Amino acid sequence: MLSKINSRVKSISIPGIRVFANKVNEYENGINFTIGESDFPTPENVKQAGIKAIENNLTGYSHNAGLLDVRQAISRFFEETYHFYYDPATEIVVTNGASEAIDSVLRTILASGDEVILTSPIYSGYESIIHLNGAKSVTIDTTDNGFILDPERLEQAITDKTKAIILNYPSNPTGATLSRDQMEKIVAVLKNHNIFIISDEIYSENTFDGEHCSFASFPEIREQLFLIHGLSKSHAMTGWRIGYVLGSKNLMEHVLKVHLNNSICASLPSQYAAIEALTANREAPADMNKAYIERRDFVYKRLREMGLETTLPTGAFYFFPSIQSTGLTSMEFATKLLENEQVAVVPGSSFTGNGEGYIRISYANSMENLHEGLVRLERFLQK
């Protein structure tokens, strides 16, 4: 029966993030630097909102697009924080995490033979969904430009087959962010092309230097844009699975059809928790960021002391240091580090081909684990 399985499914593999996250669990003293998941608990009042919903038997279906109260809270958040407006009635869909939001958007717009531009290195989950839809990913290398998209390279990459571009800033895996000036130059290119723009800004609330600027702030590309967001990173709510898509009404009515046929609606208790997070806990990310910045600065100092070339992240919670000086591939490096020192990192090759020669380290971890894990990393490098 294996011969009858969709060949596109056969062609994709389990992401390197999950491979090493699973492997490290086999070691009693393993230290996991792979997962992009906060070590903070979900805020207490947010948890209580979810518990209260369950106790009140609010455990059925909601509107396919999500509770109107949730969509109104999302709309207010973006209007008050970033000063742009999306109509909660027609331009917002609540999804089962940002991952389902990305899946629903890509399945809405892609047809076989389409091309999607990715800045590279970039989160591996995009490529899999693109390929499952029979489309092709086209990467633009950013490793020689501080992991920032070059507008000239973008212009050159757009062809008659280009259906969309995915932008992810703050970036997973590099931690790079964009200034408004850099965004304006990218927008100046994109507004002249009839292609979709998918801006995954799930890490917007984890911006450490300056303020996050959203691509949704540019009205000239509004009719092309899908904004992906959610609560997983900002409020330590990965397991609650609350994400959302924002886009113009004429686009979102089609995204909604894909979403409802996929999962009907997001978990109802999670939606009630989301209302609390978006209304009463907007300060939660800033409180967590204080700890992330302390950890970031510590890890940056230690990596530099080890002689690993790296860029100081200005957002998200990852380092993407070069390991080219070791002569090992990123897969070899990650495998040997795990086997010899029981420390799990993600091979850079997991983030498209341009990630080769790098590893990703998540510092969304305790200072105790960061101290010990980096001691082991240094010992491995010395060997």
Rank of each mutant, 00 (worst) to 15 (best):
S217L: 10
T81Q: 10
K185P: 12
I166Y: 03
N57S: 10
A135G: 13
T142Q: 12
N22G: 15
N192A: 13
V255W: 02
A266T: 04
K301A: 14
S13V: 14
N172V: 13
E276V: 04
L370D: 02
N133T: 07
F196H: 10
I165H: 02
N168C: 13
V46Q: 04
E201C: 07
N145Q: 13
Q382C: 12
A316V: 04
N194E: 12
R71A: 09
I275P: 01
P121L: 14
S350P: 07
I221V: 14
V343D: 12
H212N: 14
E356W: 01
V105L: 03
R296L: 05
E55C: 00
S128D: 07
A65P: 00
A176N: 09
D114R: 04
D141Y: 09
W240K: 11
L381T: 12
N6Y: 04
F196W: 01
H83G: 01
I361F: 11
P43C: 12
A65T: 02
S263V: 07
V70L: 07
F226I: 10
A284C: 00
D209G: 00
S13D: 15
G373D: 14
P41Q: 11
E339T: 10
L303N: 07
D144N: 15
L154N: 05
S75L: 04
Y169I: 10
L370T: 09
A65V: 01
I140S: 07
K233H: 12
R302F: 01
G243E: 12
L278Y: 02
Y292E: 03
D150M: 06
H83Q: 09
E44V: 06
A286V: 11
E339S: 12
Q342Y: 13
R153W: 04
I102W: 03
I35R: 01
I228C: 09
S349H: 02
A49Q: 02
T177C: 13
I14V: 15
N25S: 08
P269V: 05
E220T: 11
Q382N: 15
F33L: 09
D87W: 02
D209H: 03
I122H: 13
L149E: 05
D297S: 08
I202N: 08
L303A: 07
N369V: 03
Y272G: 01
I293R: 04
V187T: 04
E223N: 14
Y300I: 00
E372T: 14
T95I: 05
V24M: 03
I202M: 11
A164C: 00
P321D: 06
D141K: 11
L251I: 07
G357C: 08
F351T: 08
F147W: 15
Q48I: 03
V19E: 15
S267K: 07
S330K: 07
L178S: 05
Y363W: 02
I122Y: 08
L303K: 08
E37A: 04
I31S: 12
V258T: 10
R304W: 02
